[in-house]
Nucleic acid binder design. Structure first.
Length: 960
RNA sequence: GCGGGUGUGGUGAAAUUGGUAGACACGCUAGACUUAGGAUCUAGUGCCGCAAGGCUUGGGGGUUCGAGUCCCUCCACCCGCACCA
C-alpha cells in the first residue's frame, strides 16, 4: 500500500477525538502514580487572518516534547486556549460593525479547526478563552485582590490593605516600610482626622492596583487614544493626524513593588541568558542616592536620583523633564515663552523618539537651584532627555562625567568642572565608575567607589538625601479606553470612593453594544452606555477596560482546573500541577506578558494560593516564520485613468522616487519568493480582477507591454514576464502573503508539515517561509513507510533477529533523537530519521526488532503515520494509541566500535585518514601514524617536534 | 539612543566539551527506467586548479599543537523599547 497521508491522517484524527486520547485527568489529592509534566504554548490571539504557517512552529515543538514525555511515562498537561480580548477585533468592529464577540468567536473556531488539522495532542476539554465571563470572573477577582493588598517591604510580601489601615489608625505612616507613592508623613491623629476621600487618596498610594494620572497618546481628530504602534512620527498612523500626550486618570498596577524579587528570582529559572538579560534590563536596578536641591527664592525642593553622588561637586546645572510638576511654578516670566514653545515641541514626540533624538534640545526656565555641596547657584533647565517616569524626573547634571550632560552643556554654554581624574585608568570611558576625585572638597583624593559612599553619608548627615535603589521598571498602566476587554469590577460612589464588587457579583459582565466608537474626551465606548455606567444614588461604573495582558497573566493556572466555579483553580489541582515545566513562545513577549505573569504569580504565592515562586520553570523562544511580500512598481507620475506599472528590471533603470510599491496577492505570482518571481498574463488578469481600479493600467516589461487585454510583445513572446519585487516581512493579511497551513497539509499531509517545519532549522531562529525543501521530507516519509511494505505493496515485517549493523543503525538513531529532543534540537532529529531510514533501506531491513522501536521513535514527530504503522505491527494490543507504548531506550552496547577512523594532521591540517583499533594506546597510535606510508611525503626532511594524540578523536603531528 | 540577536556552499542548515568544517535536505549536473515526467533510482556537487596542491565559517587581529567554537576590534542585517498581541 502506498503512503497516503490524507487517508491515514483523517482516520486517526477522528479516532483520537472519539477516544479522547489526549484527555488528562487531575489525580485525586495525594495520589499520582506518574510524575507530572506541564507543557504550555503561549496561547494565540485569534486574528482574522487565521493561523498562518508561522504560528505552528512553536506548537509543533511543544507537541513533540509533550508526546515524548508522555511516552516516557509522565502525566502530561498540554492545553490550549485563546487570548481573545484585544484591539484588532475592536478595530474590525469599528470598520465593519461586526461585534467583537462574534468575530472573535468565529476566529477561534477557525483556529481550532486549523490546529486540529495539525494533529496536536491538546486536551481541549481544558480550553480557556479570556473573553469568556466564566474565565474573566477570576481575572476580575485577582484584580480586586491586588486592589485590596499593599506590599510590605519588611516581610517582603503583599498583605491585606486592612492591616495597613489598622497601622495608620494607630501609628500614622511612621514605622511602615511599604511600596508606595505617598509623599510626606502623617500621624495617627492626622489619619483619623482625614475625610474618607483623603484617606482613600492615601490608600491609593499603597494599593497594588491603584488609580493615578497617566499620559496617553491622544488624537483629537480621531477622538481616541492610540497605541504606541498606531503613532508614527508624532502623527496617527491612520489619517496622519497630530497626536499629543494627554493626562488621564487611570488604573495602574504596582509591579514595582515586586521589582527586587522579579530580578533576583531570574536566577532560579531556566530561561535563555538573552531573555533574562532583557528582563533584568527592563527592571533596570541601579544603586545611587536620592537628594533634594533647594531652589533660590522658593520653598520647593527638587528631588533627584543619581548613581554618581561622588560627582556632585561637578553638578553645574539641573535638568527637569518637561512634564515635571515644578516646571510651571518655577518658570520666570521672561522665559515663559521659550519654555512653552519647548514643551509643545516635546509633547508632539513619543518617548522612543525622544530618547532616539540625537540633537541636544532644551530650554532654560529662568530659575536657579543651589548645589548643596558647593552652595553655588546653578541654573535649572528642562530637556527631553530627562524622562518624567524614570527616577524622579529630574537630574543634577554633571557635564564632566556624563556624556549627555556634556553635550547639553557644550551646546548651551554651561559650566563644566572636572571632578574625576581618570589618568590612572587609561582606556576608561566617561561612564566607567573609576578614577580619583578632584575639585571636590572633602572627597578629594578618594577613589570613585569610596567617594560614592562618602557622598551618601554626607548627604544623609545634612538631611538632604540618602542611599536609594532605583528601578527603571515602572508601574503598569492597566486601563484602556476600549470596549473589548474585561470591565473593572468596581463602583465609584457619589463621593468618588472606589468600592470593589463582592465575589457574588462577579463576573461583572461586559455589556452589549453596537457602537464601538470612543466616547467624547477619549473615554471608552462603555461610557456611552449610560444605563450600565450610571447607577442609583450617584454611583457609577468604571468605563475603562483592562488590557489584554490581564487575561494572559494567569491563564496557565486556569488550565489546571478550568471549570472551577468557586476559585480561579482548586488547591488540589494547583498543588498537583505546581507550575509550567516547559513554556514555548515568541520572544516578543519577553517583557510585557512574562513580567506581568511572574508578578501575578508571586502575588498569588504571597497569598498562599500557588505553591511555587515562579510560574515558568523553563522557557524556550521560537523564532518567527516571516513571509515574502510581493510588490509591483507603480509609476507615481502616471495619470489616474491610465496608471503605468513597470516590471522590476525597468524600475531599476529609473529613479527610485518615481515608484510606489503596490503589494500583490502572492497567489497571483509565479515563482513566489524567489528573486525571479513574476506575474504572467494570467497573474496580471487576476490582479486586475482583484483591483478593478487598475483595469486601464499598462504593464511594461522587457518581454512586452500588456494593456486592456492586449499583450504586445516586440520579441514575439507568448506570455509576459512581469518581474515583481520580493521582500521578507511579516506574514499579514494586509500584505496579502498569509500562507495557510491547511493548504500545505492538503498537499503533503500534517506529518510532513510538522517534520518540515522542524527540519527548517533551529527552533529559536527566524526565517522566511519557503517550501523548497518540503519534497525532501515528503520523500523521507514515503521511504520510511516503504520499509514496512514489500515490492507488491503488502505489509511485510520479518521476525528474524536483527544484525549487529542494523542494531547499530537503530541505536544510533535512538541516542541522537533522545538527546536532541532533550535539547530542543528538532531539526537534527529529523536528519537522524533520514540517516537511519537511508541506512536501513540500503540493508533492505524490514525486521520487527528494528522497525518496532523506529515507529515509537518517530511517533512524537509524525503521530498519524506512527499510529497506523503501530496498528499494523500489532502493537495496539491492549492500548488505545502508540502514545501508550514506551519511548525506545538506547543501549550503548550496540554502539561500540572495534576500530576508529582517525584524521591525521600535520601542523593542524588534515593530511590523511587511517583506521586504528579502538583500544589502541597513545603510544601505538603515535607510532602507527608516523609510520603511515601516505604521511612520509609530509615528514620528509622535517623534524617531528611533537605529536598530539587525543584517543578516539584525532592525531596531530607538529613538524618544523 | 538603549537593549537583545544573527552572520558557515547556489539555498535551508550540521558540527553536544577547542579536535575530520559543510551531516541531512533543497537545487544543480550526468546517467538509468519510462509513452510521459514537476515520479523513481544511481553517481557527482564548498571555491580556485588539468593535476599536485592551495583557499574557505561577515572583515581584521590575537591565544593555541589545533579556532566556526575562546579573546579583542570593526562591519552588515534582523528584532524589542512599556496601549499590537
Amino acid at each position: 500500500m502506498d503512503y497516503n497521508p490524507r487517508e491515514i491522517e483523517n482516520k486517526w484524527k477522528a479516532y483520537w477525538k472519539e477516544h479522547e486520547v489526549y484527555k488528562v485527568e487531575n489525580p485525586a489529592s495525594g495520589e499520582s502514580e506518574k510524575p507530572k509534566f506541564y507543557v504550555l504554548d503561549m496561547f494565540p490571539y485569534p486574528s482574522g487572518a487565521g493561523l498562518h504557517v508561522g504560528h505552528p512552529l512553536g506548537y509543533i515543538a511543544s507537541d513533540i516534547f509533550s508526546r515524548y514525555k508522555r511516552m516516557s511515562g509522565f502525566n502530561v498537561l498540554h492545553p490550549m486556549g485563546f487570548d481573545a480580548f484585544g484591539l484588532p477585533a475592536e478595530q474590525y468592529a469599528l470598520e465593519t460593525g461586526i461585534h467583537p464577540a462574534k468575530s472573535t468567536s468565529e476566529n477561534m473556531e477557525r483556529y481550532r479547526t486549523q490546529l486540529d488539522n495539525l494533529g496536536f495532542s491538546f486536551d481541549w476539554s481544558r480550553e480557556v478563552q479570556t473573553c469568556n465571563p466564566k474565565y474573566y470572573k477570576w481575572t476580575q477577582w485577582i484584580f480586586l485582590q491586588l486592589f485590596d493588598h499593599y506590599y510590605d517591604n519588611q516581610e517582603n510580601k503583599s498583605k491585606p490593605i486592612t492591616d495597613l489601615v489598622q497601622h495608620f489608625e494607630q501609628n500614622g505612616n511612621a514605622g511602615i516600610d511599604a511600596a508606595n507613592s505617598q509623599e510626606g508623613s502623617f500621624t495617627a491623629e492626622e489619619w483619623n482626622a482625614m475625610s474618607k476621600q483623603d484617606q482613600e487618596e492615601v490608600l491609593m498610594n499603597y494599593r497594588l492596583a491603584y488609580r493615578k494620572i497617566g499620559y496617553v497618546n491622544w488624537c483629537e481628530e480621531l477622538g481616541t487614544v492610540l497605541a504606541n504602534d498606531q503613532v508614527k512620527d508624532g502623527v496617527s498612523e491612520r489619517g496622519g493626524y497630530p497626536v499629543i500626550q494627554k493626562a488621564m486618570k487611570q488604573w495602574y498596577l504596582r509591579i514595582t513593588a515586586y521589582a527586587e524579587r522579579l530580578l533576583n528570582d531570574l536566577e532560579e529559572i531556566e530561561w535563555t541568558d538573552a531573555l533574562k538579560t532583557i528582563q533584568s534590563n527592563w527592571i533596570g536596578r541601579s544603586e545611587g542616592a536620592s537628594m533634594f536641591f533647594d531652589i533660590v527664592g522658593s520653598d520647593e525642593k527638587i528631588e533627584i536620583f543619581t548613581t554618581r553622588p561622588d560627582t556632585i561637586f561637578g553638578a553645574t546645572y539641573m535638568v527637569l523633564a518637561p512634564e515635571h510638576d515644578l516646571v510651571e511654578q518655577l518658570t520666570t516670566a521672561d522665559q515663559k515663552q521659550a519654555v512653552d514653545d519647548y514643551i509643545s515641541y516635546v509633547k508632539a514626540k513619543s518617548e522612543v523618539e525622544r530618547q532616539a533624538e540625537k540633537e541636544v534640545t532644551g530650554a532654560f526656565i529662568g530659575a536657579y537651584a543651589i548645589n548643596p555641596f558647593t552652595n553655588e547657584q546653578i541654573p535649572i533647565w528642562i530637556g527631553e532627555y530627562v524622562l518624567k517616569d524614570y527616577g524622579t524626573g529630574a537630574i543634577m547634571a554633571v557635564p564632566s562625567d556624563d556624556e549627555r550632560d556634556q553635550r547639553f552643556a557644550k551646546k548651551f554654554g554651561l559650566q563644566i568642572i572636572d571632578v574625576v581624574d581618570k589618568s590612572k585608568y587609561p582606556g576608561a570611558t566617561l561612564s566607567d565608575k573609576v578614577g580619583v576625585i578632584i575639585n571636590s572638597g572633602f572627597m578629594n583624593g578618594m577613589e570613585v567607589p569610596e567617594a560614592i559612599t562618602a557622598a551618601c553619608q554626607k548627604a544623609e548627615e545634612m538631611g538632604i538625601g540618602k542611599m536609594h535603589i532605583n528601578y527603571k521598571l515602572r508601574d503598569a498602566n492597566f486601563g484602556r479606553q476600549r470596549y473589548w476587554g474585561e470591565p473593572f469590577p468596581v463602583i465609584y460612589d457619589a463621593d468618588g470612593l472606589v468600592h470593589g464588587l463582592p465575589l457574588e457579583e462577579l463576573p461583572l459582565m461586559l455589556p452589549d453594544t453596537d457602537d464601538f466608537k470612543p466616547t467624547k474626551g477619549g473615554r471608552s465606548p462603555l461610557a456611552r452606555l449610560e444605563d450600565w455606567t450610571n447607577l442609583s444614588d450617584g454611583r457609577s461604573r468604571e468605563t475603562d477596560t483592562m488590557p489584554a495582558v490581564a487575561g494572559s497573566s494567569w491563564y496557565y493556572l486556569r488550565y489546571m482546573d478550568p471549570d472551577n466555579e468557586d476559585a480561579f483553580a482548586g488547591q488540589n489541582a494547583v498543588n498537583y500541577w505546581q507550575d509550567v515545566d516547559l513554556y514555548v513562545g515568541g520572544s516578543e513577549h519577553a517583557v510585557a506578558h512574562l513580567m506581568y505573569a511572574r508578578f501575578w504569580h508571586k502575588f498569588l504565592h504571597d497569598k498562599g494560593l500557588v505553591p511555587t515562586n515562579e510560574p515558568f520553570k523553563k522557557l524556550i523562544n521560537q523564532g518567527m516564520i516571516q513571509g515574502v511580500i510581493e510588490f509591483i512598481y507603480l509609476d507615481k507620475n502616471s495619470p489616474e485613468d491610465a496608471r503605468r506599472f513597470v516590471s522590476a528590471e525597468i524600475a531599476a533603470q529609473e529613479p527610485d522616487g518615481d515608484f510606489a510599491k503596490i503589494p500583490v496577492h502572492i497567489d497571483y505570482v509565479t515563482d513566489y519568493g524567489s528573486d525571479k518571481s513574476y506575474l504572467n498574463l494570467a497573474g496580471i488578469k487576476q490582479f486586475i480582477d482583484w483591483r478593478p481600479d487598475y483595469a486601464n493600467a499598462s504593464f511594461e516589461s522587457a518581454t512586452g507591454t500588456y494593456k486592456s487585454g492586449v499583450f504586445d510583445s516586440p520579441g514575439g513572446a507568448a506570455d509576459i514576464t512581469f518581474v515583481t519585487l520580493s521582500e521578507v516581512g511579516k506574514m499579514s493579511k494586509s500584505k496579502f502573503n498569509v500562507i495557510n497551513p491547511d493548504d500545505v497539509i492538503e498537499q503533503y499531509g500534517a506529518d510532513c508539515f510538522r517534520m518540515y517545519e522542524m527540519f527548517l532549522g533551529p527552533i529559536e531562529q527566524s526565517k522566511p517561509w519557503d517550501t523548497k525543501g518540503i519534497s525532501g521530507v515528503s520523500s523521507f516519509l514515503r521511504k520510511f513507510w516503504g520499509l514496512f511494505f514489500d515490492a507488491q505493496g503488502t505489509f511485510s515485517v520479518s521476525e528474524e533477529p536483527a544484525s549487529k549493523e542494523e542494531m547499530k543503525i537503530l541505536h544510533t538513531a535512538i541516542k541522537k533523537v533522545t538527546t536532541d529532543i532533550e535539547r530542543f534540537s528538532f531539526n537534527t532529529c529529523v536528519s537522524a530519521f533520514m540517516v537511519a531510514t537511508n541506512d536501513l533501506r540500503k540493508l533492505n531491513c524490514n525486521k520487527r526488532a528494528v522497525l518496532d522501536p523506529m515507529v515509537r521513535l518517530v511517533a512524537p514527530f509524525a503521530p498519524h503515520a506512527a499510529e497506523e504503522l503501530w496498528l499494523r505491527l500489532g502493537g495496539m494490543d491492549g492500548m488505545k494509541t502508540v502514545q501508550e507504548a514506551g519511548f525506545p531506550q538506547f543501549d550503548e552496547k550496540y554502539l561500540v566500535e572495534d576500530s576508529i577512523t582517525y584524521p591525521i594532521s600535520i601542523n593542524g591540517k588534515k593530511r590523511a585518514l587511517a583506521d586504528f583499533p579502538a583500544d589502541a594506546s597513545k603510544e601505538d597510535l603515535e607510532r602507527d601514524a608516523l609510520a603511515l606510508e601516505e604521511m612520509q611525503k609530509w615528514l620528509e626532511g622535517k623534524t617531528v617536534r611533537k605529536v598530539i594524540v587525543v584517543p578516539k578523536r584525532m592525531i596531530n603531528i607538529v613538524v618544523g
